[in-house]
Design a binder for these strands. Structure first.
Length: 303
DNA sequence: AACGACTACAACCGCAGGATG
DNA sequence: GCATCCTGCGGTTGTAGTCGT
């Protein structure tokens, strides 16, 4: 009997016919009674599988095939920092996105980050690896949560393509600022600094605030030196140009004054020609332990 | 062109918690 | 109180596409 039941349940990719049956069921009864789909013999799928298929793929107004826009990424990063891995809750702030989307996005982002951090720990002698090339290509800031949220998002390079998929935030950037955030006392969150996430209403791009080291964090002398250098405009200016081959002919794009020159224009000064700071040298100078305090973010269950 | 590494995505599983009968 | 169903989460796997060598 047990074996028979198991045989009855279909798994794997969904066929169009199955999707149609599921859609018809939802049209008739609404998005509920998932288990009845199987008990009625309509589909040989579990109710759970049916629900997942509907929620993640068949639900109307889904942004399937669209990469996360910079704004969406910013929302995920900010909300994740605020409420933890509540993907479904975060997804409610992103119309057209499912919890699975958000989870996958975060997961691949974490993997990317882990790999880059791991690469940053590799000694120079092993610099012939592919990871070394990746490391040199993308400044570590791209994937470190706090810095990333501050400076720019890794999906900025997708900006052009993602414009085709208009997000509600693109249409109304003010909307996200007006959305009620969950009733959480931010000050209770370890390491969370609300000042790090200041939404710039005009541009929609988070205004970069240089993160201050937490008092209880212990940095190596090298890290201290680097943190001190963050106050140096020329040091930050290295981030003004990014090697982004994905952009084709616009192989380099400038983050420009709006990000790094909010008040004065001092950041626009040409960098020291004698001591040019390049993303490569910048990365190479970063001690591996510098980001130890950043990853991983604590989940609310651990508070 | 072939191959391997990497990425994004879809889908599954196990578990937990809430709602309902 | 218990069983069942639904929902959500974290983790994982499989696969197709992309990219670099």
């Amino acid at each position: 009997m047990e074996g028979f039941k198991k045989e009855e349940i279909r798994k794997g990719p969904w066929k169009e016919e199955e999707d149609e049956v599921l859609i018809n069921h939802v049209k008739k009864y609404g998005p509920r009674d998932w288990s009845s789909i199987r008990s009625k013999g309509l589909l040989h799928r579990t109710g759970k599988s049916c629900r997942l298929r509907w929620v993640n793929k068949l639900r109307p107004n889904l942004k399937s095939g669209c990469k996360f826009s910079a704004e969406e990424e910013r929302v995920v990063i900010d909300l994740q920092a605020e409420i933890g891995n509540k993907w479904a809750r975060i997804a409610t702030y992103l119309p057209g996105r499912t919890d699975n989307d958000v989870k996958n996005f975060w997961s691949s982002r974490q993997k990317r980050l882990a790999r880059i951090l791991q690469a940053s720990g590799t000694p120079p002698s092993s610099s012939n690896s592919k990871q070394q090339k990746i490391k040199n290509k993308y400044p570590v800031f791209l994937d470190v949560p706090t810095f990333e949220a501050l400076m720019f998002s890794s999906s900025m390079e997708e900006e052009v393509s993602s414009k085709a998929c208009s997000s509600s935030y693109s249409e109304n950037p003010e909307q996200i600022r007006m959305m009620p955030l969950p009733p959480l006392v931010k000050s209770e969150l370890p390491g969370y600094d609300a000042n790090l996430f200041h939404y710039e209403p005009m541009s929609g791009i988070p205004f970069p605030q240089i993160p201050q080291p937490q008092p209880d964090l212990v940095f190596s002398p090298e890290s201290h030196e680097l943190l001190a250098r963050l106050d140096d405009p020329y040091f930050l200016n290295v981030l003004g140009t990014i090697d982004a081959p994905e952009l084709g002919d616009t192989a380099q794009f400038s983050l420009g004054p709006p990000l790094f020159d909010p008040v004065t224009s001092c950041m626009n000064t040409p960098r020291d020609a004698k001591n040019p700071v390049t993303p490569d040298t910048l990365f190479d100078e970063l001690p591996p332990d510098m980001f130890d305090h950043i990853e991983p973010l604590p989940s609310p269950s651990e508070w």
